[in-house]
Simulated scan of single mutants.
Amino acid sequence: MPSQSAGPAPRPEPQRRRRADAQRNYDLLVSAARDVFHHHGVDAPLDDIARRAGVGNATMYRHFPTRRELIIAVYSEEVAGLCARSRSLLASDRPGNALFGWLQDFIAHVAAKRELALSITDDRTALFDGWHHSMHTAASALLTRAQSAGAVRPDLTATELLTLANGIALTATDATPAERLVLLLRQGTDTSSTPTDSTRRHDA
């Protein structure tokens, strides 16, 4: 699946382009839902989201007939944002910092949006396959660039990196913050930590 450029995340939008006012209302609703879900959970009243967005309930239900569709839209926007950040970081003159800076954002996303992800209980496979592919592509592009610059050991894969980052997101605590765990991960993946042939033979 790896690619050299981070592709966009799947978005639950119609193929036909929205009018400017409809797009504005859509964006307001997604932004309001992100804030309300963050502060009050995914079961927060939908009326509160419409009120926060400054639109009527009829407008909200026209864009998002069900809570599930609104949750998917919020999660998709988060994934799309991470992919966009990956693309912008590809221009960084410090590839190692770009990779691990993006990983910090990925970890924050997993930790903060876990409830959203778990609330999508039906037809999860296609959605999460698409999101996973987008994240993998984004990480692969940054990782390949960091490896080419000699900033990260060459035997590391994007799948391994995302698995480790996901573990950090789910297990980090105030006593062991994510930032320290990411630092340890970075130290462990530094090119100076790459096993030598003699080490591999000894381990075998």
Score class of each variant (00 low, 15 high):
Ala32Phe: 10
Glu78Met: 00
Val36His: 07
Thr66Asp: 04
Met60Asp: 03
Leu29Ile: 10
Tyr61Trp: 05
His39Asn: 13
Val74Ala: 06
Ala33Ile: 02
Gly56Thr: 09
Asp35Thr: 14
Thr66Trp: 00
Ile72Lys: 06
Val36Gly: 09
Tyr75Leu: 15
Asp43Met: 03
Thr66Met: 01
Asp48Trp: 04
Asp43Pro: 02
Pro65Trp: 02
Gly56Tyr: 07
Arg68Ile: 14
Val55Asn: 09
Glu77Trp: 07
Val74Leu: 06
Tyr75Lys: 00
Ile72Trp: 07
Tyr26Asp: 09
Pro45Glu: 05
Ala80Trp: 11
His63Ala: 02
Ala80Pro: 00
His63Arg: 02
Arg51His: 11
Ala53Asn: 08
Tyr26Lys: 02
Asp43Leu: 09
Phe64Asp: 04
Asn57Phe: 09
Arg67Tyr: 04
Val36Cys: 15
Asn25Thr: 00
Glu69Phe: 04
Asn25Asp: 10
Ala80Ile: 00
Pro65Gln: 04
Ala58Tyr: 14
Glu69Pro: 03
Phe64Cys: 05
Glu69Tyr: 01
Thr59Tyr: 03
Ala33Phe: 02
Arg67Cys: 03
Val55Cys: 07
Arg51Met: 12
Arg52Gln: 15
Val74Ser: 05
Gly41Leu: 10
Asp48Thr: 06
Asp47Met: 12
Arg62Ala: 06
Gly41Met: 14
Val74Arg: 01
Arg67Pro: 01
Ala53Phe: 05
